[in-house]
């Protein structure tokens, strides 16, 4: 069960609209390495995770990603406030505007709609955690790419915060992978899938 806190994890106060930048940053709302995919990835992987520390980290990073989804939403919203039709036309924001006005809709920078193929939930803890390590790095690169395009410090500041969180999450998932491996056969980590295969003499996966 979740409860909502009426605050952003990191403040967003952007005074100058910039629809071109919004059309780049929206990729972290619904793009291939975006925050919505991150939240769904981790929150979906929890059910197949046998180890308590890793259930905790998937739950809590997944929850934080929902907060990041909201930060990106706030950035895109503030970058598209009070636009004139002329600004929309000149900035290249027109195709998005035609379908969504300035409402938020999860899509990639190239216009591709969000879909669940952006992430994996494989039912195998080693595989899922490697997916997560890669995902955090891909998101970090996307933020690096965004930061090269951003001149406005009011936009760069929260984007830098989100980029740093990718690095922290990468670290925590690395530790989670170590915890998983410590439970497995050190001569062959792949001898069995602890989320699926039952060990001899044990009623459930250990």
């Amino acid at each position: 069960m979740w409860k909502y806190e009426k605050r952003l994890q990191y403040p967003v106060n952007i005074s100058q609209p910039n629809p071109k930048l919004a059309s780049f940053i929206i990729s972290q709302y619904g793009g291939p390495d975006g925050e919505s995919a991150a939240a769904m990835r981790y929150l979906s992987q929890r059910y197949a995770m046998p180890y308590k520390e890793c259930k905790g980290v998937l739950t809590d990073i997944g929850t934080e990603e929902l907060g990041h989804f909201e930060i990106i939403g706030a950035i895109v919203h503030q970058l598209t406030r009070n636009l004139t039709p002329q600004q929309i036309e000149e900035s290249g924001f027109g195709p998005y505007y035609i379908d969504h006005t300035t409402g938020l809709w999860p899509q990639a920078a190239g216009g591709i709609p969000f879909n669940a193929c952006e992430f994996q939930s494989k039912g195998d803890p080693i595989t899922d955690l490697n997916e997560n390590l890669a995902a955090e790095q891909k998101a970090r690169v996307t933020y690096d790419n965004i930061l090269r395009m951003v001149k406005d410090p009011e936009v760069a500041d929260p984007i830098r915060f989100l980029r740093e969180r990718e690095v922290v999450h990468y670290q925590r998932f690395g530790e989670a992978l170590r915890i998983v491996c410590d439970h497995l056969d050190s001569k062959n980590f792949y001898a069995f899938n602890p989320a699926f295969d039952r060990k001899e003499g044990c009623g459930q996966s250990c």
């Binding site: 069960m1 308590k52 259930k55 905790g56 739950t59």
Partner: peptide, 9 residues
């Protein structure tokens, strides 16, 4: 204690 079992699922 946050990471202690059980989890709701």
């Amino acid at each position: 204690t946050w990471v202690e079992n059980p989890w709701p699922w």
